[in-house]
């Protein structure tokens, strides 16, 4: 079982998590019909109006999903508070894989 995960795989999970937690769809952000990579530049604060609870819920959802696949990930708390955009989160989660 792989213990690595690509940032692209994480991005797909993040986008699903954001849609679920924040009740958003692509149309809300003008991203309808565009690939998941279009979400990389979406900012948690300015674009999604996400607070720290939204952020933690999304990140922990992705971490749990990856653990179920045998990939151990955990973004350090000090890094989590520095995440600005969805792409940052994808990179941080993928980079934390043990």
């Amino acid at each position: 079982m792989s213990t690595r995960v690509s940032a692209e795989e994480v991005l797909d999970l993040l986008v699903d998590g954001i849609r679920r937690v924040m009740g958003l769809d692509d149309g809300d952000l003008g991203l309808a019909g565009r690939p998941a990579t279009a979400w990389r530049g979406v900012r948690f604060d300015e674009d999604l109006h996400a607070d720290s609870l939204d952020l933690v819920e999304v990140i922990e959802g992705v971490e749990r999903a990856l653990r179920r696949r045998g990939v151990e990930v955990r973004v350090a708390d000090v890094d989590l508070v520095r995440l600005r955009a969805v792409g940052d989160a994808a990179d941080a989660i993928a980079g934390s894989a043990a």
Partner: peptide, 9 residues
């Protein structure tokens, strides 16, 4: 403490 970060930590 930030509640969400506190619960996580």
């Amino acid at each position: 403490e930030d509640p969400a970060l506190g619960v996580r930590a």
